[in-house]
């Protein structure tokens, strides 16, 4: 499933760069697209705002198939306080922008599976695919709005995986 998780993240990241190149984060001295995998970063004392954070949860395997199918649940969390320019009064708009970016990032609902442990990444034989996201209600904490979306990501296990 790791190749599928990597491919899913890289697909979303590549798409985000096109959708909104200004959504970036400065992390460990490097400017990166504003989308992170929680388990691949140092623990956050505070969840970063205005970026997408991927958190992997459950895993299921369907073995009774010609190729086993793995399904991983990914939660995509995002939050915002709006912009300083508007004193945070635009936080609702900022969250709506992130909603729209998320929807755009998730389409199309598939991407080629690549092995990112190889250099350059090796294209594998199958595609990773996923369902429509299930969005949670907005959570408000003082001046911060947050939301998450759960997506089930599917992948066929190939030889060597």
């Amino acid at each position: 499933m790791q190749n599928a998780k990597d491919s899913f993240y890289m697909a979303l990241r590549t798409r985000l760069v096109v959708i909104n190149p200004e959504r970036i984060i400065l992390l460990r001295g490097t400017v990166r697209p504003g989308i992170l995998v929680e388990e691949a970063e140092a623990p956050f004392s505070q969840t970063p705002s205005d970026v997408f954070l991927l958190r992997w949860h459950g895993l299921g395997i369907e073995l009774n198939l010609a190729s086993s199918m793995a399904a991983g649940e990914c939660e995509i969390l995002y939050q915002t306080c709006g912009t300083q320019t508007f004193g945070g009064l635009d936080r609702g708009r900022s969250l709506s922008e992130m909603d729209e970016e998320l929807m755009a990032m998730l389409q199309p609902f598939y991407t080629p599976k690549l092995n990112y442990t190889a250099s350059p990444p090796a294209t594998m034989l199958t595609q990773v695919f996923w369902d429509e996201p299930a969005l949670t209600p907005i959570a408000t904490q003082r001046d911060q709005l947050s939301r998450s979306a759960k997506v089930v990501v599917y992948s066929y296990q190939e030889q060597g995986e």
Binding site: L65, A66, S67, M69, F109, A122, L125, T126, F129, Y154, Y156, E158, Q159, G160
Partner: peptide, 15 residues
């Protein structure tokens, strides 16, 4: 040598 094929299960479609 890397495999060049896989056994495909029944198609999965959305729409």
């Amino acid at each position: 040598m890397a495999s060049t094929w896989y056994s495909a299960p029944a198609p999965v479609t959305r729409r």
